[in-house]
Amino acid sequence: MTPPEVTRIDVRKTYKLYIGGAFPRSESGRSYVVADAKGRFLANASQASRKDARDAVKAARAAFGGWSGRTAYNRGQVVYRIAEVLEGRRAQLEAEVRDATGLTPARARGKVDAAIDRLVWYAGWADKIAQVTGGANPVAGPYFNHSAPEPTGVVAVIAPDDPLLGLVSVLGPVLTTGNTVVLLASEPAPLPAVTLSEVMATADVPGGVVNVLTGSRAEVAPWLASHMDVNGLDLTGVDDPVLARTLEASAADNLKRVRRPRAEDFADAPGIDRMTGFLETKTVWHPMGI
């Protein structure tokens, strides 16, 4: 009797949340099935709960002082480092994008490359946006007066379904400007977001600066929209107009800055409004005299 031919069994990955620099499962113990573009089982992803969302906000708030207080140069280097580490994982990301979208290998590769390039673009903005949007104000009196942008605070981002390029296109601008982030990944295609979390954990992004949740938008997004310690809300990934309106109305309770969903092609040049939408302008006065 000849022994059966041994084929190696894959070591599969457990897809978890990313909160405060750690990778917990949902405290609820729940998961949901993530399928590929043809409906085949890919993985069980964590199904985040209200408590997970609140833990993520808490981690993001704790990280805000440190991240926003870093020099812009340093933040730019950290965002650039994410792109560097992603570059080394292009094959993995290409496979994940193909699984999630059913794109051809060449087009999936194009998405990965564009996503990495987008992060490089935003990395370079970290120490330039203040010069572009701030400056000296020539007031009619003997005063030094100048305005500069500052990050809004904790921003909750509902990511779009474009699983990688869309993801970095919404994360990059809020991160590079010094906000801390609670990101709810694409509900049907969350796996690239989990991989991006693993990249950030090894790319000098301090724990808590970006927190990634996977799960149901209809369940989790309302907790983020109504959370009184969240300062901004990006609704890009909310396709349902009724849900979008409800979330925007909840966000009004503490006057969150809200970016409404709109049709956009992430292949286009992004412009700077994703950065300026989550920046505040601070104006400082001082008398001149001897």
């Binding site: 104000n137 007031v139 009619a140 009196g141 007066n145 104006t283 008398p287």
Partner: peptide
């Protein structure tokens, strides 16, 4: 949004005003 140092309640058309 506006920080007055060694002065207060100054306003000017050229100076952005608004809150966090």
């Amino acid at each position: 949004g506006v920080v007055w140092s060694n002065t207060f309640n100054r306003f000017d058309p050229a100076s952005p005003f608004g809150g966090y």
